[in-house]
Design a protein around this nucleic acid. Structure first.
Length: 595
RNA sequence: GGUUCCGUAGCUCAACUGGAUAGAGCAAUUGCCUUCUAAGCAAUAGGUUAUGCGUUCGAGCCGCAUCGGAAUCACCA
C-alpha cells in the first residue's frame, strides 16, 4: 500500500473526527511536494476552510498533528500558507528501496490469463508505397501504448489492418506493367515496398503528363483529369480485380508480396509486431448485416436514390451515406463490419484505434453509430487514439511529390549518426559487431524517443537536421545514464542479491530526490495507461536519468569510505538502472549495458 | 461558413489534470576531464503562457469572446 493511500485514509478519518463531516477527502489531492520546499507529500487545505472555520495555517497544523499521530511513518510536517507538507521518515524511504528493488514486477501488473483483452489497431498501411514518417509515429504510438497497457495489467491484442486493395494499388500495377519491363526486387536490388512505391510515383508522373497533353488539345482540365488513359486503365484494372480476373489477381498478389516482405523488414527493425493482421481484400464487403439491422431498427433509412443513409444532424454532424445506391460498401461500412467481426472474435473490453487526427470526423461517426444509434455496449468502448501530423520545416509531406521522409532512410540516418558519434567520442573498445549493435540501439532509440516524448494529440515538427540530436533530452542521454550505472556496478562487484544494511542511515538530498523519483514509477505507468500517453513515461525517464546524473556528480560511490553509505548508493544505482530499463522498455527502446 | 484540435523562452517540448517563484533541451556566453564513462555536471541570459473579459481563496489549465494555425465537412480510403 502506497504512502499516498495511507495518508488519504488517515485524512478522511481525521476530517471526520475533527469536523464531523464525511467531506470529500478525495477532493483534497495528495501531491508531490515541490522541490523548493521541504517535505514529501503536500495537502492543500484551502477546500477545508469552510469546515474548519479556521485560518489556512491553523487548519493545516490541526490536520498535520492529527496525521502525525495516526501515521508512524511520518516524521514531521511544516506549513506554508495553506500548504501542509508532510515528511516521511528516512528509514521508511530506505525500506521502500529495500522492498521495491527486489521486486522484479515493481510498477507493473500481471494480466490474468483468461482476462478479456484490449484490442488495439495500428499501423494500417497502404500497399502501394513504403512506410514514411507519419506511419512511424503511428507505429511507435501503437506499439508503446500496447506495452504500457500490458504493464498496467491488461491483456492486449495488437492488430494491423492492411489496405491491400483499391485504386491506389492498381495505379502501381498499371505503371509497373507499362514501364517496369519485368523489374523485380531481386533484379533491381530494391526493397519490395520501395520498388512498388517507385511505380506509384511513376504513375503520377505519366498521369500528369497525359493531363497536360489533353489540356493542350483543348480539353478542360477537370475533364482531362478523368479522361487520361492511364487513369482509365487503372480503373478498368480495379474492375477486373473486383471481378476476380485471374491475371489481375496474380499480378496483385505478386506485387503485394513484394511489399509485405519490405514491410516485414521495416517492422522488425522498428521492433514491432502484431498478433493478427487483417486484409481489406477480405473485409471490404463486411458491414452489410449491420446496415440491414440499422434499417430494421429504423436507425438508418433508404434514400430515394437507393442509397442507405443516417441522419446525424442532431449530433452536430451531417447526413452520412452508409451504402452506395448500387448497393456497394463505402469506407464506414467496412469499419462498422470489421468492428463487429472483431467484437465477435475477441469480446474485448476496449477497442482502440490508432489513427491520425485527420480522421476524427470518421471516428466520431463510427462511435456514434455503434455506441449510440445502434446502442451496442461494445460500441461504447471504441476509443480513437488520435495523433497529430508530423510536419517538416518545408511544410507537409506529399508522397506523390517525393517530399516524404522515408522510414527506412530515416532509420539508416539515425544509426549512421549514432555510429559516427560513438567513433567521434573515441569509444574504440567495441568489436565491429558490438559497434553495429550499439549504433542500432542508440539510433533507433533516439528516433523513438524523439517522437514519443511529444503529446500524441499535438502536431509535431520534424527538422531532419536539428531534430536528430543525441545530447540533452534524448534517448541516448537516458541510455548513457543506464550504461554508466551498469559499468559502475560491475566495477563495484555489485550483485542483485546484495541488500541494504539495516539501521538508520542518513539520507542526503541527492539520494532522497532520486528515491522519490523511483517511488513515482508505478503511478507514472498507471497514468500513462489511463491517458494512452507514452509521452508521460518518456518525460519521467528523462527526469529520472537527470536526477541520477546529479546524484552521480554529487555523491561519490566507489570512493565513498563509509560502507553503509556506499551500499545504499549502490542499491539506489542498481534500482535506478532497473527502472530506467523498464520505463524505456515500455517505449520500445532498448538500453545498452555499455556505450 | 459548420465542427474538432492546437497557440507556453529565438527553436523543439514539459508543467503530476485548478495549487506555491511556469520548467528542460537546443542555440548563445562561462566554468569543470590525472579521481566511479564529459553522449555528463554547474552557472548566466532568455516569459504579460496569442489577446480581452469572467468563474474563486488561487487560472497556462475551466467558461465566453476575439485573433492566428491545423484537420475535416465525398456514393475516396
Amino acid at each position: 500500500m502506497s504512502f499516498e493511500s495511507k495518508i488519504a485514509q488517515a485524512l478522511t478519518e481525521s476530517i471526520q473526527e475533527l469536523y464531523h463531516s464525511q467531506a470529500d477527502a478525495q477532493s483534497l489531492s495528495i501531491q508531490k511536494t515541490k522541490k523548493e520546499f521541504e517535505g514529501d507529500f503536500t495537502i492543500v487545505v484551502f477546500p477545508l476552510l469552510k469546515l474548519s472555520r479556521l485560518k489556512p495555517e491553523d487548519t493545516a497544523r490541526q490536520l498535520g498533528d492529527a496525521l502525525l499521530a495516526k501515521l508512524p511513518f511520518l516524521e514531521k510536517y511544516n506549513v506554508i500558507k495553506g500548504f501542509l507538507n508532510l515528511s516521511v521518515r528516512p528509514s521508511e524511504w530506505i525500506g521502500f528501496v529495500r522492498e521495491a528493488a527486489s521486486d522484479p514486477q515493481f510498477g507493473h501488473k500481471q494480466a490474468a490469463k483468461d482476462a478479456a483483452p484490449v484490442l488495439i489497431e495500428f499501423s494500417s498501411p497502404n500497399t502501394n508505397k513504403p512506410l514514411h514518417l507519419g506511419h512511424v509515429r503511428n507505429n511507435l504510438l501503437g506499439d508503446s501504448v500496447s506495452r504500457i497497457l500490458e504493464a498496467d495489467g491488461k491483456r492486449v491484442i495488437k492488430v494491423n489492418l492492411v489496405n491491400d486493395r483499391g485504386i491506389h494499388i492498381c495505379k502501381s500495377m498499371i505503371a509497373w506493367q507499362r514501364y517496369g519491363q519485368g523489374e523485380t526486387p531481386e533484379s533491381s536490388g530494391m526493397k519490395g515496398d520501395h520498388l512498388v512505391g517507385k511505380y506509384y510515383v511513376e504513375f503520377d508522373k505519366h498521369y500528369k503528363a497525359e493531363i497536360q497533353e489533353l489540356v493542350a488539345k483543348g480539353v478542360p482540365e477537370e475533364e482531362a483529369a478523368k479522361q487520361a488513359p492511364i487513369l482509365q486503365e487503372a480503373q478498368a484494372m480495379l474492375r477486373r480485380w473486383e471481378e476476380g480476373d485471374p491475371e489481375t489477381r496474380q499480378l496483385w498478389e505478386m506485387m503485394n508480396a513484394w511489399v509485405y516482405a519490405g514491410f516485414d523488414t521495416t517492422y522488425r527493425r522498428m521492433g514491432i509486431a502484431f498478433d493478427k493482421t487483417y486484409y481489406e481484400s477480405n473485409t471490404y464487403l463486411l458491414g452489410k448485416e449491420i446496415v440491414k439491422e440499422g434499417l430494421d431498427k429504423k436507425v438508418f433509412y433508404r434514400h430515394s436514390d437507393g442509397s442507405v443513409r443516417i441522419h446525424l444532424e442532431d449530433e452536430g454532424l451531417d447526413e452520412k451515406v452508409l451504402l452506395r445506391s448500387d448497393g456497394t460498401s463505402v469506407y464506414i461500412t467496412q469499419d462498422l463490419g470489421t468492428a463487429l467481426t472483431r467484437y465477435n472474435e475477441f469480446h474485448p473490453t476496449r477497442m482502440i484505434y490508432v489513427v491520425g487526427n485527420e480522421q476524427n470526423y470518421h471516428f466520431d461517426v463510427l462511435k456514434l453509430i455503434l455506441g449510440k444509434k445502434l446502442d451496442y455496449d461494445w460500441g461504447k468502448t471504441i476509443y480513437h487514439l488520435s495523433y497529430g501530423m508530423v510536419e517538416l520545416p518545408s511544410g507537409k509531406m506529399k508522397s506523390r511529390e517525393g517530399t516524404v521522409v522515408d522510414a527506412d532512410d530515416l532509420m539508416d540516418t539515425m544509426t549512421g549518426m549514432a555510429a559516427a558519434n560513438t567513433a567521434q567520442l573515441g569509444k574504440t573498445s567495441f568489436s565491429e559487431e558490438e559497434a553495429k549493435q550499439l549504433a542500432d540501439i542508440v539510433g533507433i532509440g533516439a528516433l523513438k524517443y524523439f517522437i514519443l516524448k511529444v503529446d500524441p494529440k499535438k502536431n509535431m515538427l520534424f527538422n531532419p537536421d536539428e531534430s536528430i540530436d543525441l545530447n540533452g533530452n534524448t534517448a541516448p542521454f537516458i541510455q548513457y545514464t543506464h550504461a554508466r550505472i551498469r559499468s559502475l556496478l560491475l566495477k563495484a562487484g555489485f550483485t542483485p542479491q546484495q541488500t541494504l544494511p539495516g539501521g538508520e542511515a542518513v539520507l542526503g538530498n541527492p539520494e532522497k530526490e532520486i528515491i522519490r523519483n523511483l517511488y513515482d514509477y508505478p503511478a507514472t505507468v498507471a497514468q500513462a495507461a489511463a491517458e494512452f500517453s507514452p509521452a508521460v513515461l518518456a518525460n519521467y525517464a528523462y527526469e529520472l536519468a537527470k536526477s541520477y546524473n546529479r546524484f552521480y556528480q554529487d555523491c561519490p560511490i566507489l570512493r565513498e569510505s563509509d560502507a553503509q553509505k556506499q551500499q545504499l548508493r549502490l542499491c539506489i544505482s542498481a534500482f535506478t538502472a532497473d527502472v530506467i530499463r523498464r520505463a524505456m522498455g515500455l517505449l520500445g527502446i532498448l538500453v545498452p549495458e555499455r556505450m
